[in-house]
Amino acid sequence: MSSSPHFLNDSETIFPEELLAAAAAALDAAKKKGVRLATAETVTAGLVSACLTSVSGASQIFDRGYVLYHESAKATGLGVAEDVSKQHGAVSAEVTQGLAEGLLSNSGATVTVAITGYAGPGGGNAKNPVGTIFVAAARNGVPLLAERHVFPGSRDNVRLEAVAAAIRLLHQQIDA
């Protein structure tokens, strides 16, 4: 009988401590305001959701997460109009904002965050090179928040930086 591998020591975590601290702070703020959270992720493929739910007690606040990875899924997911993606591209501020807003009506959440981007090594273009990340956070009755970042480094570094950016913007929208 073989034993299963032991990947982490009892004190180790999948995510860096500063990301877990940011996730815990966002969840605490959401709990204090009585709001539920949801994510729509492309480039991070569920890492934002995983980071948030790595915090004990997240199930009281985190509603759900969507991973829209194929270009057709991100282009039209969560009610984003197909012409928005055709005009601006599946990885764009406009699609990301549409995903964040669409998530409000496709979940039980009152604050949402969406993220698209190019982690590399392929993808990107002259306007939005590899490392470009779009993040948007929506909340009913509050102006949408949106950011564009260009992160350096490896695919995994870009994705972890994107998770940090998404959690920061989500927290900002919770506090709005």
Rank of each mutant, 00 (worst) to 15 (best):
L78M: 05
P143Q: 06
N9A: 15
G153N: 06
Q172L: 13
S2K: 12
G131E: 07
Q97V: 09
G141V: 10
T96V: 08
S56E: 14
A45Q: 05
T53R: 06
A165K: 05
A22I: 02
M1H: 05
A136H: 01
G102Y: 05
S3E: 12
V135P: 00
T39E: 12
F62L: 06
Q97P: 00
A23T: 06
G123I: 10
L68E: 03
Q87K: 15
A162K: 06
G98Y: 02
L145A: 07
A164K: 14
S3R: 10
A24V: 06
L47T: 01
S54G: 14
A100Y: 01
F151C: 03
G120E: 02
V111H: 04
T53W: 11
L99V: 08
T96C: 14
E147F: 01
V80G: 01
I14Q: 12
K86S: 14
H88R: 04
T132Y: 14
A38Q: 05
F7P: 00
P16A: 06
E17P: 09
G123C: 08
L104T: 00
A29I: 04
E94K: 10
G141S: 10
R155E: 03
G34Y: 04
E17H: 12
Y118K: 08
L68T: 00
S72I: 10
E82T: 11
V43R: 00
A119E: 02
D63Y: 02
D83S: 13
M1F: 08
N128F: 13
D28F: 05
L99G: 08
P129V: 14
P5D: 10
A26C: 15
E17T: 10
T44D: 02
D156A: 14
V55I: 15
